[in-house]
Structure formats: structure tokens, C-alpha cells
Design a protein around this nucleic acid. Structure first.
Lengths: 187, 187
DNA sequence: GAAAGGCAACCTACCAGTAGGTAGGGAGCT
DNA sequence: AGCTCCCTACCTACTGGTAGGTTGCCTTTC
């Protein structure tokens, strides 16, 4: 049995991914978790604490998830495909990447949340960059910018395609857009 | 002197681009426009009417703006650079593309707004696709997918980079990401 | 081993503020 | 007269947040 704090974060994460930060309320969370609204405040006194908690947890879990893919034994293009598959999986469940979703609302964030968001993005781009470094060295990928710049572009593409495809185009267009870009790097 | 309806749309558009749809209220708009909250309801009875109005107007204005670039006499890669510059300009003013911003909140939209959003995306991708068609014919661009798929990917990249870069990386990273992808197509 | 204290977790009940929205009135234009 | 536009005044529902109480488990103490 998972503890309540984790349950709250799980529910909140799903809500943010589906409807966005500012459309999610303590009431929604309390109903889904099955406890009273005031009890959420026991675990997360202010909403900003919840957002911080969400971002801190996703910095670790997303980071680990991406790192596991990057640490694999495949060639770089296949690693990019695996990274894209993570986003495809989210899209399949009508969920956006938490970082992408929260980034859209970044102007309504507290400073503390903003800092965590920034370092999470920075970290994610670093992890992605390792794939492009590998691709450069094993000559399986060609690109003009630096590893970091290209990783930033690839991450942004996944975030953006997920958002746009959820509104129009769906899985098929998302997959083809990702594959088009990846095979573009392969030439 | 512009009419009130237009003023409301102007203010609302800026708010959506800066803080997002669900963080924008009729109170915010009324204060910025300089009329009472109830008066907004005279022009837009329900919030969904406002969103529809916003999307309908942007479908035209964005569409015209993109079309003007596409109709130019430049080679395809330079047209892509001009399209990216539109997004860079928004980023410079801390504003996201309206379509990207609203798409993130698409799960909280009414059906009518959803339909307009979808056709706006479809239309935008079609306009972008013309550049890739031109690039293919004049052999200034190389890519593996179809024109539409590649246009979708490029549009998504701009939307995503804008969102991510606003939170972390800023103009510099946005510009380099866009340039990296464009010069990737040029090879 | 039993009583006593402390604390985490949850509850009910409440607060002020704000959300979107409505009713109805008055001014000015055609 | 009728219409557009904007107003004051108000409504209900919900927002994040607080106060204070109850329960039950874990220590500590005798």
C-alpha cells in the first residue's frame, strides 16, 4: 500500500498532464485520492509546495527513465526512437510531458518552482545530448549544431509534437514527425 | 479608435500567450481594457465564445502572416528562417504562439473551440507544407517524410522550442535549435 | 506491563477572495 | 421606438487556505 503523499503526487501528476496546472484544484485531487481537501494541505501546505514536489519527483523519475535508455547498448538513432516512444506512450494516454505542460504555465509559477523546472530541463537536455555525442562518434548521426543545441531541439520537438498532435493529428502524425526528424539526422 | 470587441480580443490574446487560458480571467481582461467585467459578457456571453473568437481571429491573422512569408520570392530555407523569426519575436515579448498555448489546455476546451483549434492547426501545417514542397522542387531542402509530415514536425519544433526556451535557455537556445534544424534540412 | 505524552494523519467547519455569469437600468445613436 | 453598449448590483460555485478537534500509533517513563 502506497503512502498518501505518493498517492497525492500520482493523482496530481496525471491531472497536470491531462488538463494543465491551472485547471487542477485541490478539490479534484482530494476526490480522486479519497481524502478531504484539508488533508492535502497537511502534506502540501501551499499549492507551490505541491508543484515543487511534482517537479522534484519528475526530475528524478524522468531523468532515470531517460538515462536508462541512453545507457543502453543500441546505436544512437535507435536510442532517439526509444526516447520518442516515451512521449508516444504519454500521448496514447492523453498525457503531456509534465515538463512541457508546466512550462506552458511557467509565467504563473513561484520562483522556487521555476528554478526546479529550469534545472530539470537543463538535466534532461544533458542526458539527451549524450545520445548525439555517441551518434557523432560512431558516425550514425549528422547534425550542424553542438550536441547540447541539437538535444535541445530534439527535446523541444518531442514536447511540441506531443502538444500539437494531442489537439490535431494524433499518434500517427506524432510518430511520422519524430521518425522524419530522426531519419533526417541519420543521413 | 478601435472598437471594444477588438480591444477585448487583443488583451485576451496577450494574456493567453503570457499566462495561459486557465490563468486568464474576465477580471484581468476588464481591468486591462478599462470596462466592467459584466460588459465583457455583452460581447462574449460565455468564456467559450471568447476562446472561439480568439481562435477564429488568430486563424486568419496568423494564417495571413504565414502565407505572406510563404508567398515571398526567397528560397525555401530562408522562408523557414522567416517563419522561425515570427516565433522568436513572440518569445522576445514573453509570448507563446496562441495555438501552442491553447493546445496545452485543449482538454479543458468546449467542442466548438476544439474544432476551430484543429482546423487552425491543419491550415497552418498546410501553409508550412508549401515551403517544403518548394524546397523539394528547387532542391534546396532534403527530407524523408512527406511535405505535410515535415511541415507538422517543423511547426511542432517551433511551438515546443518556444515553450521550453521561455522556461530555460531563452532566445539564444531557441535560435540555435531552429537554425540547427533548418540547416539540417539544407544538406 | 501499563499509564502518559507526543505526534502524524486525517477530519469537520469555516474563511475571504475570485471565478464565470445574470438581471435590469440608463445613455446615446439611428 | 428600438438597438447597442456599458453600467451597478448581485448570484452561485468554487478557489486556496486556516482553525481546531479526533484518532491511533509509537515512545518514554514508572
Amino acid at each position: 500500500m502506497v503512502d498518501t503523499r505518493t498517492k497525492i503526487l500520482d493523482i496530481a501528476e496525471g491531472l497536470v498532464q491531462r488538463v494543465g496546472l491551472n485547471a487542477m484544484s485541490y478539490k479534484d485531487i482530494s476526490e480522486a485520492v479519497g481524502i478531504r481537501k484539508a488533508s492535502i494541505h497537511h502534506h502540501f501546505p501551499k499549492k507551490e509546495n505541491l508543484v515543487d514536489g511534482l517537479l522534484e519527483r519528475c526530475a528524478v523519475s524522468y531523468g532515470d527513465n531517460y538515462q536508462r535508455i541512453v545507457d543502453g547498448s543500441e546505436k544512437a538513432p535507435d536510442k532517439l526512437r526509444k526516447l520518442a516512444a516515451v512521449f508516444a506512450d504519454g500521448l496514447n494516454n492523453n498525457k503531456l510531458c509534465l515538463v512541457g505542460s508546466i512550462s506552458t504555465d511557467s509565467n504563473t509559477l513561484q520562483d522556487s518552482s521555476c528554478h526546479i523546472l529550469q534545472s530539470t530541463i537543463k538535466n534532461t537536455v544533458s542526458i539527451f545530448a549524450a545520445v548525439f555525442e555517441q551518434g557523432r562518434q560512431e558516425q550514425s548521426l549528422t547534425f550542424t549544431g553542438t550536441d547540447e543545441e541539437t538535444a535541445f531541439a530534439f527535446f523541444s520537438l518531442l514536447v511540441g509534437s506531443q502538444i500539437v498532435a494531442r489537439s490535431h493529428g494524433g499518434m500517427q502524425l506524432f510518430q511520422r514527425a519524430a521518425e522524419g526528424v530522426i531519419s533526417g539526422f541519420e543521413r
